[in-house]
């Protein structure tokens, strides 16, 4: 029996030295270490050994088991390490298993950028309905009935008294009617103009309106705030100018231009927003005392801003939603 154990040990060592692959290692395992392998067989035959020899044979058998198992484990580990390094080739150049991620519409992205700047300056964000009353859209904002100022904004009417809002300014009216100053908010949203669709104009667009009403609001602060915005949005070195204009709901009214310098082309001033001090009539209409409170307001078109920023020449492409366009932003 002892001889048999020694022989098995020798043949195991011999076989082990010949192992050169996972397959031959597995063969080795099956031959010696499996349930019916040589080592197990020897344990089986232990029961035939005489009582007095049993401890000695048993001990030697145990040593064999430990020896074979540990040598096998050692070898296996070696193989596994080798395999990790060079045995199989991993083609890292295969494309990864991508899951697509969508994007916000470019107008939303532009609006986000505008919103974030003004939120940083302490503005809240309010929204309001698109189908508005003539009162909120025009009358409360100091547009007299039958005044040519109404022609500035071609209007889609639903009835004589209801219309698709032509600007986000009715949200001002709602906000000032519902809340007391101080009020500092921007009001983004969709607005409508009854104009033929062309490369330059669409029947709807998005606007961001801003409003600040308090006891110490000034034109100088309006300018400062808008300049801060322009610098953040267009770049710190932006050139700008303010010029007089007319909006029924602000007085004095102004427009802000920035200098636009396309590469290789002639630069020009481009109007980027309208602004002014809230007309006292508007404050009166919403029940705020214009002697005590002063306000400023401003508004800008998101489409125009996005088209400038990204060099888009035709407004219609914004509403075509062609995937080849959507995936660019």
């Amino acid at each position: 029996m002892i001889n048999k154990i020694d022989e098995t040990r020798k043949s195991f060592d011999e076989d082990l030295s010949k192992v050169d692959s996972f397959a031959s290692l597995e063969e080795l395992r099956i031959k010696y270490l499996s349930r019916k392998g040589l080592v197990s067989q020897l344990f089986e035959s232990l029961k035939d050994v005489s009582k007095e020899d049993k401890p000695k044979v048993g001990q030697s058998l145990n040593q064999l088991k430990i020896h074979t198992q540990s040598k096998f484990d050692e070898m296996k580990e070696t193989f596994e390490n080798n395999e990790n390094k060079s045995e199989s080739f991993v083609d890292l150049s295969l494309p990864g298993r991508i899951r697509p991620i969508g994007s916000k519409h470019i107008l939303t992205q532009t609006l986000d950028e505008i919103k974030n700047i003004f939120k940083g300056l302490g503005f809240s964000v309010y929204e309001g309905p698109e189908l508005e009353s003539d009162y909120n859209n025009f009358e409360a904002l100091n547009f007299a009935p039958d005044h040519p100022a109404r022609d500035m904004q071609d209007t889609f009417f639903v009835t004589e008294d209801f219309l698709l809002r032509t600007h986000t300014s009715p949200v001002q009216v709602r906000l000032m009617t519902e809340k007391k100053p101080p009020l500092r908010a921007i009001m983004p949203g969709k607005v409508f103009r009854n104009e033929a669709i062309s490369a330059k104009s669409y029947c709807l667009f998005h606007q961001v309106e801003g409003l600040y009403v308090d006891t110490d609001v000034t034109f100088a602060e309006l300018k400062g705030t808008l300049v801060a915005f322009a610098k953040q949005f267009y770049g710190q070195d932006v050139q700008y100018r303010f010029r007089a204009s007319f909006f029924p709901f602000t007085e004095p009214s102004a427009e802000m231009d920035v200098w636009w310098q396309p590469k290789g082309k002639e630069g020009r001033w481009l109007e980027v927003l309208g602004c002014g001090m809230v007309d006292p009539n508007v404050l009166k209409n919403v029940g705020i005392d214009p002697e005590k409170y002063v306000g400023y307001a401003f508004g800008m078109g998101v489409e125009r801003t996005a088209m400038l920023k990204y060099g888009i020449g035709d407004i219609r492409i914004l509403f075509d939603n062609d995937k080849r366009f959507l995936t660019q932003f």
Partner: peptide
């Protein structure tokens, strides 16, 4: 809503209201 939908692979579109 937009951010969650973007992360699930959806692109946002804006169409005419009329």
């Amino acid at each position: 809503v937009r951010v969650v939908l973007n992360s699930l692979g959806f692109y946002e579109i804006i169409t005419n209201s009329l």
